[in-house]
Simulated assay, not measured.
Amino acid sequence: MDGLHLLSDRRTFLAGAAVLGLAACGGAGKSGRTKLVLGDQVHLLQSKAEAAGALTALPYDIEWANFVGAAPLLEALNAGAVDTAPAGDLPVVLAAAAGVPLKVIAGSVSSTRDIGIIVPPGSAIRRVADLAGHRVIVSSARGSISHYLLLEALKEAKLDRRKVDIGFMLPNDAAAAFAAGRVDAWATFGTYQIAAEARGARLLRDGQGINTGLTLIAASQKALDDPAKRSAIRDALARLRTASQWAQAHPDAYAAVFAKATGVDPKLAKLIVDRQNPVLVAPDAAVVKPLQRVVDRFHADGELPVHVDVASIVDPRVFPA
C-alpha cells in the first residue's frame, strides 16, 4: 500500500497547482508584512469570515486558496502552497501518518448527517446490504471520511467489502459520474451530498453512529516554526472563531453570503448552512478522544499504514484562549 495513499495522484495535483499559480508560501507579502495562505474547501471558511467581517484591518496579509477536497488540499500543505488546511478527521491523520509535517490547531463538530452513502433516484438498491456486486464511488480518496463511512456501513450490514466494487474520485468528478448514471452508489459528504439529495438522490446510510463529524484545521510545521506566522495564525484562528460564532447566530445572513461566493442556489445554501455551521473549538480532549477511537479502528482494518497517536499531532497552544 502506498505510504501516501491519501492522494489519488500526487503528480497530477502538483501539475494542476502550478497551472493555478499556487506559489509556495513566502514569509512576507508584497507589503513586506507576514503573509498567510489559508486553505479552504468549497469556500466554507472564507464565506463565513467575509459574512462576519472578521478579517478586516489585519496586521498581516492573507490569501485564500480553495480546493474541491481534502486530498489535494493536504498535498498543497505538504508542498508549501498553503499554511493551513481545514479537512475531515481521517484525511488529516492519514497525511500525518504519511509524513506530512503538520499539527492540528483547531477543530469543529458538524452533524454526522453531513456524510452519506446515496443512490440515484429510482435505484433498486434499498439498503447497504444491496450494494453487493455494485459499483460504489468514494469521495475523494482512500482514508476520506466517506471511505470510513462506507467500510463501517458494510461491516454493519455484514457485507464483505470484497463483494463491492469500490472506486475513488475527487468530489467534482464523482458528482459528474453519479449524475450521468455511471456509478450505482456514491459515498460522499457536505455540499456534494446535499446537492445530490436536492436533485432526488436517496440516502442509504448517513454517518450517525459511525463518523465523528469532526473537521480539523491543520497547519504546516514550517509555518508554526516561524514566530511571525505562528502569531498571525493564532490571530486568524481567533477571528475565524468569532466568525463561526457570528454565523451560528445569523445563519440566514451567512447562507446568503455563501450562496453568492459559491454560486449555489440560495435554498441549497440554506440547507448546507443548516448542516455545516459549527463553532471553531480548541483541539482538546473532546476532539482527540473520539478521533483516537476512529483511528484505532481504521488501523485495525488495515487502512492506516501506521498507528497514529492523535495527541502527538496536536498543538493546542496555537488556539487563542
Score class of each variant (00 low, 15 high):
260 K>V: 09
32 G>L: 10
36 L>R: 06
193 Q>L: 15
56 T>S: 04
185 A>Y: 03
255 A>S: 15
60 Y>C: 10
38 L>F: 06
186 W>H: 12
42 V>W: 04
263 G>H: 10
212 T>Y: 02
318 V>G: 11
239 R>M: 08
2 D>G: 06
167 G>Y: 03
16 G>L: 07
64 W>N: 03
314 V>E: 09
122 G>M: 00
251 P>Y: 11
48 K>H: 00
292 Q>K: 04
247 A>P: 15
200 G>H: 05
93 V>C: 08
138 V>D: 12
305 P>E: 13
41 Q>Y: 02
224 L>Y: 04
20 L>V: 01
311 A>H: 08
121 P>H: 04
279 V>L: 15
219 A>S: 10
226 D>P: 04
270 K>S: 13
177 A>Q: 14
320 P>V: 06
184 D>A: 05
2 D>K: 15
164 V>E: 11
313 I>W: 01
24 A>E: 13
130 D>A: 06
192 Y>E: 02
176 A>L: 15
311 A>K: 11
304 L>T: 13
31 S>N: 12
276 Q>M: 14
321 A>E: 12
71 A>C: 02
14 L>K: 09
46 Q>W: 03
10 R>H: 11
282 A>D: 06
197 E>W: 02
241 R>W: 09
165 D>G: 08
203 L>C: 11
82 V>R: 10
237 L>G: 13
139 S>V: 01
97 A>M: 02
201 A>L: 10
182 R>K: 15
39 G>M: 09
92 V>W: 05
174 A>G: 15
46 Q>M: 04
180 A>I: 06
223 A>F: 01
35 K>G: 01
63 E>L: 07
302 G>I: 10
102 L>N: 10
273 V>S: 10
112 T>M: 08
231 S>H: 13
46 Q>D: 09
108 S>R: 14
101 P>L: 09
175 A>Q: 13
42 V>P: 00
186 W>V: 01
250 H>K: 14
166 I>P: 13
204 L>I: 06
141 A>M: 08
23 A>Y: 00
17 A>L: 14
240 L>I: 03
43 H>T: 07
185 A>P: 10
127 R>I: 05
310 V>Y: 03
218 A>I: 09
111 S>H: 02
288 V>E: 15
133 G>W: 10
282 A>T: 01
199 R>Y: 04
269 A>D: 03
67 F>E: 09
12 T>S: 12
133 G>A: 12
193 Q>V: 01
16 G>F: 02
38 L>H: 05
219 A>W: 05
67 F>D: 03
20 L>D: 14
101 P>V: 06
198 A>P: 06
95 A>R: 02
